[in-house]
Design a protein around this nucleic acid. Structure first.
Lengths: 161, 161
DNA sequence: TCAAATTATATTGTGCGCAATATAAAAATC
DNA sequence: GATTTTTATATTGCGCACAATATAATTTGA
């Protein structure tokens, strides 16, 4: 390949990765005011989404909790990120962390009453975001499908190695 | 809206933002081995792309440099991120940071000989990434166009405020 | 022309991400 | 059943991101 072609491929505007990286940060920034209002960061919000989904409306008495590993697999995050994040959520009274009695290696996570309650304040966020964005819904939906498809492809390749 | 619909919108798999966030991290991870080989992190690589583009083949004698602000606008990063990053690039001998003589507020950034030289080792990276990904080129290209379009829309809205 | 507003960068502090390492418990293998 | 291997979490350290604040230089405008 000659230099002109190589320079073309090195131009910032031609980097797929940069478009992805920049838009991801921009969208996260759009969430910030909404999440500030309920006292969550964006990664903390993702963890709460996972827990709201899996714990349903069960109280912490009824629910055995999920291992940290489960949350990590869902969000593609490792314990170096999750352990301190979960400790902060615990310090804020939204979750409980308790070492499993049947398998002492596991730490099981479950929502407190306050954590369950917070879901009611979060319900409005997805629609709010969509409205705030002013973007055409079908376009966002199509893009999301494509992103999820590529993500699956990359993850499957990772698993083969 | 009833609870079922709200729960649907709160499901992790339905979050546009999560698909974006997760894929962005995955793609960055794919760059890591290639960038490790030339001693750059991913954000540092982006800064170098900007500088390679704007300085061309000029030596640091010939080139007046660009302000930190210029790099920040190109990458949508603020000085809280850039100042320490640029200091690391300087410590590694890839750039010079020099306060402008005509406007003492500005710090002008330019590539050293080593920084210019590194471009030769970086030339292969974009094509390598495309090959490694194993993804269909046209699909990636189309997605990139869509991401850039949304990014522009979000940035324009920001500028109006 | 001088005070006020703006601009460019730096600093501080918090919270991710992630590699590398450590530790303890459970499972597998001999 | 003792040893090895694997698994689950924690810790440490580094480098972003970004809000908030500070500082100094320039520009604006009364």
């Amino acid at each position: 390949m000659d230099d002109d072609n190589a320079d073309f491929l090195l131009r910032l505007d031609n980097q797929f990765c940069f478009a992805l990286y920049a838009l991801s940060r921009k969208i996260t920034a759009e969430y910030r005011p909404l999440l500030d209002a309920i006292g969550l960061t964006y990664p903390q919000y993702l963890v709460m989404l996972v827990l709201w989904e899996v714990q349903g409306n069960a109280t912490s008495d009824e629910f055995p909790g999920v291992p940290v590993k489960f949350v990590g697999e869902r969000l593609l995050l490792d314990t170096g990120t999750l352990t301190p994040l979960l400790k902060r959520l615990e310090a804020n009274g939204l979750i409980q962390r308790k070492r499993s009695e049947t398998d002492e290696r596991e730490v099981r996570i479950r929502l407190t009453a306050a954590g369950l309650q917070l879901k009611e304040q979060a319900r409005q966020i997805p629609l709010q975001m969509l409205c705030n964005s002013g973007l055409p819904v079908d376009r966002v939906a199509a893009l999301q499908q494509e992103l999820r498809s590529l993500l699956s492809a990359v993850c499957e390749r990772d698993n083969e190695t």
